[in-house]
C-alpha cells in the first residue's frame, strides 16, 4: 500500500511488472512504431516527415499508418515509440492547445506545446514512451523542437528520431543547408525518410510530409509511395464447395411494429 501522505506520482506497478517479466511471466506487448521521423527548418517554414509502418515484433501491423499528428493549424507533431502513447499524448496536447487558443484568443505558440509535452512526459518519468518531433510556425517564426520520453527537449534546425534516425540523420548531415527552397527541402525530407524506410527494418512503406509556413499548412499524405504491392500471379478464389457447411439455419428479426410480411431474414447460410 502507498502511504496516503506520499506526494506525486508513483510507479510501483511498473516495478512490479518488471519483476514479473524478469521471472518469465507474460506481459502486454505494445504496438511500436519502429519508425523514421524527421524534421527540418527551411527558408519559409518547417517540414516534418514520417514513414507509415507500424510493427508488432517482426510483423508489420499496419502498412499505412499516420505518424504525423495535428496539434493546431500551425503545429504538427511527428511521433515515434509506443503507438498508443504518441497518439494519446498528442491528442491531449491538441485539445489543451485548442482550449488555450479559445481562452487567450491568440494563435498557440510552439514553445507552449513543447512545455506542455515535456512537463507531461517528465511527470510520467519515461513510462510514457513517446519520442516526438514538434514543428510549427508562430510569431517567433519557424520552430523545431524534439521531446524525448523522459521529458528532455532539444531545439535544432534539423532532427531525426525513431529506429531509422541514424539512416535519416546520415542524409541530413551530408545534405542539409540553411535557408533551403521549399521543393528542395521537401525532397530532402523525403530522401531522409526513404533512407530509414529502406535501411531500417522497423520503418517501411510510404512517406508522409507536412509543410508548415507562416499562413499555410500543407499535409501531403503519402507524398511518396516507393513500396507498392506487386500483382499476384494466380487467383486464389476457392471453387464453390471448398468449405463444408456444418449447420444451416435461417433466423428472422422479430419486430412488434412490423407486419410479418416485412420480416427480413437476418442470416442465410447457403448450401452448395
Amino acid at each position: 500500500m502507498v502511504p496516503a501522505n506520499r506526494r506525486g506520482f508513483h510507479f510501483d506497478n511498473c516495478k512490479r511488472n518488471e519483476l514479473l517479466e524478469s521471472k518469465g511471466s507474460i506481459t502486454a506487448k505494445f504496438t511500436k512504431t519502429g519508425t523514421t521521423i524527421v524534421g527540418l527548418i527551411y527558408k519559409d517554414g518547417v517540414i516534418l516527415g514520417a514513414d507509415t509502418r507500424a510493427t508488432e515484433g517482426p510483423i508489420v501491423a499496419d502498412k499505412n499508418c499516420e505518424k504525423l499528428h495535428r496539434l493546431t493549424e500551425n503545429m504538427y507533431c511527428a511521433g515515434a515509440g509506443t503507438a498508443a502513447d504518441t497518439e494519446y499524448t498528442t491528442n491531449m496536447i491538441a485539445s489543451k492547445l485548442e482550449l488555450h487558443r479559445l481562452n487567450t484568443n491568440r494563435q498557440p505558440r510552439v514553445v507552449t506545446a513543447a512545455s506542455m509535452l515535456s512537463q507531461h512526459l517528465f511527470q510520467y518519468q519515461g513510462h510514457i514512451g513517446a519520442n516526438l518531433i514538434l514543428g510549427g510556425y508562430d510569431i517567433n517564426g519557424p520552430q523545431l523542437i524534439s521531446v524525448m520520453p523522459h521529458g528532455s527537449t532539444d531545439k535544432l534546425p534539423y532532427m531525426t528520431l525513431g529506429s531509422g534516425m541514424l539512416a535519416a540523420m546520415a542524409v541530413f548531415e551530408t545534405k542539409w543547408k540553411p535557408n533551403m527552397e521549399r521543393d528542395d527541402a521537401i525532397a530532402l525530407v523525403t530522401e531522409a525518410v526513404s533512407a530509414g524506410i529502406f535501411n531500417d527494418l522497423g520503418s517501411g512503406s510510404n512517406v508522409d510530409v507536412v509543410v508548415i509556413t507562416k499562413d499555410r499548412t500543407d499535409y501531403l499524405r503519402n507524398h511518396s509511395k516507393p513500396n507498392q504491392r506487386v500483382p499476384k500471379q494466380t487467383s486464389y478464389k476457392y471453387p464453390p464447395g471448398s468449405v463444408s457447411v456444418i449447420r444451416k439455419e435461417v433466423r428472422y428479426h422479430s419486430n412488434a411494429n412490423q407486419s410479418p410480411a416485412a420480416v427480413v431474414p437476418e442470416v442465410v447460410m447457403s448450401e452448395s
Binding site: P58, V60, K63, G204, T234
Partner: peptide, 11 residues
C-alpha cells in the same frame, strides 16, 4: 506470390 506476401508483412 507467397514471397511477395511475406515481404509485405515480415520485416
Amino acid at each position: 506470390d507467397v514471397f511477395n506476401g511475406a515481404a509485405e508483412r515480415d520485416i
